[in-house]
Write a protein that binds this DNA or RNA. Structure first.
Length: 605
RNA sequence: GCGCCCGUAGCUCAGUUGGAUAGAGCGUCGGGCUUCGAACCCGCAGGUCGCAGGUUCAAGUCCUGCCGGGCGCACCA
C-alpha cells in the first residue's frame, strides 16, 4: 500500500525520476495516475486511500499489453462493484489516451490496456540512446550496500558451493549497482581460530612424514591431497634457500606459509572466475586492533552480556533468538561469535544502509543471532539481510560425482572452471533460485549445444553480431533508430520481440528488490528464444542477386522467391533497416543482461 | 521434540510479491536448412500445483493442521 495522499507525491516522483521501469510502463503508469486523479477530482471515486499502482503483463497477448487490477483493489474501500470502478477509470483513461490504443474492462474488474505502436518504437530509441546503461534505474540512489560473500576459510581450495556463492554474489553486486546502489563487495577471512591451527598442524605433520619422521596426523586435521602439495611446497622452498627442512617453531612457520599460500590460491581462483572483491577483512585484525574487546565492552554497557557458568554470554533472546549464545568459553577462548560481533559492528559503523551476507544454507540457524547483534547495536534487524545458498550436486552425465568430505578431496571450483569455463559455470549457478538445490552436470555444462542454456543465450548474441558483419560486407547500412520508419515493425512477431525489451528495466528493478539475480537468466533465455524464432521466420538482409553470386547478370534465383513465399512477406529496404534496428536493440539488452550475470557476450563462437 | 526451507508435467525447475485458461528446458514422438550462423526453428503428448481445511471478489502464492524430504538446534568454524 502506498502512503495516503500518494498522488502529489507520485507526481513529484514522476517529475524527477528517470524512466526506471522503462518508457512504456512509466508512460502508462503516469496516464493511469492522471486518470485516477481526474476521477477523484470529479467525485466519481472517493479514493481516500491510494493502492499501489501495479501494471501486470496479461498472460495472453490477445488481452492487451498491460493490465491493472487497481479497480478490484479499490472495491473494498470504495464499497462498489469492481467492474463499476473499472469502467469509471477506463472512461477517464479514454479521455487522455494519446498513448493507449485500446482500453477494455474485463470481468471481474481488470482494465486491459493496449499500447500505441509509437510507444513501443520509443523503446528502440531509448535502448539506442542509453546503450549499456539501458535497464538501469535510480531505485537505490544514495544508498550504500555492503555485500559480503564467499568468505571461505583459507584452509583449503574453493569448492562448488563457494563457486555458487561467488556467482550469486557477483551477479547481485552488478544488479544492485545497476539500479543505483553504491555497492562494496567484501571477503571476510577467518584467519584467527582453531581452523587455522588445524591447517598448521596438518601441514607440519605432513612435512615431518615427508622427511621420514614419525609424526601423528592431527585427529581433525585436513586430509586433502592439497595438504601434501602445501607440505611439499614448503619443504621445497626451505631446500631452495639452503635451509633445514623444518625451522624452529615449525607449527607457526608451516601455518603462516600454508595460510599465505591458500589465500593466494583463493584469490587466483576468484580471479579466474572473474571476480574481484573491493575489500578483504581479516578476523585476526579484529582482535589485534581491539575491535573485539571494544565491541564486547559496548554490548556489556548496554546490558546485553552476562556471565554464567564461567562463560560470557550474549543475551540474544532479547531480540527473539531461541537461546542465549556463548561469546567467551570457560577456558577463556572466544567463540567465532565474538569476532562476528566485532565484524558486524564494524560494518555498521562504516555507515552502510544495508548489509547483505551470502551464506551456505546450513548456516540458516545463525540468522536470528546475527540479527540480534545488529539490533543490540541499535539498528533495525532488517539492516542485515542474509541470502542462503543451497548445496550444489555435482553430476557427470547424470551420475552423481561423489564428494568424499572425509578425505578432504572435494571437487574444486578451479577444476570445474578449467573444464567447463567460467561463463558456463556462472550461468548455470544462476539458473536456480539461490535457496534451492542445484544439480550441476559437468557434461551438460561443457556441451556446446541447446541443452546448455549459456550457449543458447550467447549464440543469440553472436548470431546478431554475425548478421551485422554480413551487412557490413554487403554494404547494407545499419541506420540509427531516428532515421528509420519503425511503423513497418507492426506485425505480431515484431511486437513479441519488442515487448520484452520494454520490460527489461522493470525486470532488473524487481530482481534487485527481491535480491534474486536468477530471474535474469530466465529472462535472457526467453529473449534469446524469441530472437531465434524471429530470425528463423524472417529475413533481415536483402538476398544477393545471382550476378553478385557468380558474376553473371541474371534474375534473382528461384530459391529466394521460394523462401520469400514460404515466409510470406516481401522484404523492402525499409523493412531491412527497421529490423536491423530492432536486432541491435535485442543484442544490446542481451549484452547488458549477461553483463549483470558476469557472463561474456561473444561476437563469435 | 523445537525452528527454518522445500513438495508444481516422466526429470530438473520458473511462476512478475494475491490476479484471467499454471509456464520453460530436458526427455519421448513427428517435422524443417539452395543465399543472414541448424550451437537454430516448428508441432504433438504430458497437471486433482503433496493432502485437508480456512482467509479473499480472486490462492501455486497468505493462515492452520497433517503427510513426505532437506537443513539446523555446540562453551565447533
Amino acid at each position: 500500500m502506498a502512503a495516503l495522499g500518494g498522488f502529489s507525491r507520485a507526481a513529484v516522483v514522476w517529475g524527477v525520476a528517470s524512466m526506471s521501469a522503462g518508457v512504456v510502463r512509466e508512460t502508462v503508469l503516469s496516464t493511469l495516475r492522471e486518470a485516477l486523479e481526474d476521477a477523484r477530482a470529479s467525485g466519481d471515486l472517493k479514493l481516500t486511500t491510494v493502492p499501489a499502482l501495479v501494471l501486470d503483463v496479461p498472460k495472453k497477448a490477445a488481452l492487451g499489453d498491460l493490465a491493472t487490477t487497481v479497480a478490484m483493489n479499490l472495491s473494498a474501500t470504495e464499497h462498489r462493484d469492481p467492474r463499476e470502478i473499472a469502467e469509471i477509470i477506463a472512461g477517464r483513461l479514454r479521455s487522455h489516451s494519446e498513448v493507449l490504443e485500446r482500453i477494455e474492462v474485463a470481468p471481474p474488474g481488470y482494465i486491459n490496456l493496449t499500447v500505441k505502436r509509437d510507444l513501443w518504437f520509443r523503446v528502440l530509441a531509448e535502448i539506442e540512446a542509453q546503450g549499456e546503461q539501458y535497464g538501469g534505474s535510480s531505485l537505490g540512489l544514495g544508498q550504500r550496500v555492503l555485500l559480503e560473500f564467499v568468505s571461505a576459510n583459507p584452509t583449503g581450495p574453493l569448492h562448488m558451493g563457494h563457486g555458487r556463492g561467488a556467482a550469486v554474489g557477483g551477479a547481485l553486486a552488478n544488479l544492485l549497482r545497476r539500479v543505483g546502489y553504491e555497492v562494496s563487495t567484501e571477503y571476510y577471512i577467518n584467519d584467527a581460530g582453531r581452523q587455522m591451527k588445524l591447517l598448521a598442524e596438518s601441514v607440519e605433520a605432513r612435512c615431518r612424514q615427508l622427511i621420514g619422521q614419525d609424526a601423528a596426523f592431527p585427529e581433525e586435521g585436513y586430509r586433502g591431497a592439497y595438504i601434501d602439495d602445501l607440505a611439499k611446497g614448503f619443504l621445497a622452498g626451505r631446500q631452495a634457500a639452503g635451509q633445514d627442512p623444518l625451522p624452529a617453531g615449525p607449527t607457526e612457520s608451516c601455518g603462516a606459509w600454508a595460510y599465505a599460500r591458500m589465500l593466494e590460491d583463493i584469490k587466483a581462483d576468484l580471479d579466474q572466475f572473474g571476480l574481484r572483491f573491493d575489500t578483504w577483512v581479516h578476523e585476526r585484525a579484529l582482535f589485534e586492533t581491539g575491535a573485539v574487546a571494544q565491541s564486547l565492552e559496548l554490548l556489556k554497557a548496554r546490558g546485553h552480556l552476562f556471565e554464567q557458568d564461567g562463560a560470557l554470554w550474549f543475551r540474544s533472546t532479547t531480540f527473539g533468538d531461541d537461546k542465549d549464545r556463548v561469546i567467551r568459553k570457560q577456558d577463556g577462548e572466544y567463540t567465532y561469535l565474538a569476532s562476528d560481533i566485532a565484524y558486524h559492528r564494524d560494518k555498521l559503523d562504516r555507515g552502510y544502509d544495508l548489509l547483505i551476507n551470502i551464506w551456505g544454507a546450513d548456516h540458516h540457524g545463525y540468522i536470528p543471532r546475527m540479527q540480534a547483534v545488529v539490533q543490540a547495536f541499535g539498528h533495525p534487524k532488517d539492516r542485515l539481510k542474509v541470502i542462503l545458498v543451497q548445496i550444489v550436486n555435482l553430476l557427470r552425465g547424470g551420475r552423481r560425482v561423489t564428494m568424499s568430505k572425509r578425505a578432504g578431496d572435494l571437487i574444486t571450483l578451479r577444476e570445474v572452471v578449467e573444464e567447463v569455463g567460467a561463463d558456463a559455470a556462472k550461468f548455470i549457478f544462476l539458473t536456480r533460485r539461490a535457496d534451492s538445490q542445484l544439480d550441476f552436470d559437468l557434461e551438460v555444462a561443457k556441451q556446446q549445444s541447446a541443452e546448455n542454456p549459456v550457449y543458447y543465450v550467447q549464440y543469440a548474441h553472436a548470431r546478431v553480431a554475425s548478421l551485422f558483419r554480413v551487412a557490413a560486407e554487403r554494404g547494407v547500412p545499419v541506420p540509427r533508430t531516428g532515421e528509420v520508419d519503425c511503423s513497418v515493425l507492426s506485425s505480431p512477431d515484431d511486437l513479441e520481440l519488442m515487448k520484452p525489451l520494454a520490460e527489461y528495466p522493470a525486470l532488473v528493478e524487481a530482481s534487485a528488490q527481491a535480491l534474486e539475480p536468477h530471474r535474469l537468466t530466465y529472462y535472457l533465455q526467453d529473449l534469446a528464444a524469441r530472437l531465434h524464432a524471429y530470425y528463423y521466420k524472417h529475413r533481415i538482409l536483402p538476398p544477393l542477386l545471382e550476378r553478385e553470386l557468380n558474376g553473371h547478370d541474371h534474375l534473382k534465383p528461384a530459391a529466394h522467391d521460394a523462401e520469400q513465399e514460404r515466409k510470406g512477406e516481401t522484404l523492402t529496404p525499409a523493412l531491412t533497416a527497421a529490423r536491423l534496428c530492432l536486432f541491435r536493440s535485442v543484442q544490446t539488452v542481451i549484452r547488458n543482461g549477461l553483463a549483470i550475470l558476469g557472463v561474456s557476450a561473444p561476437e563469435r563462437m
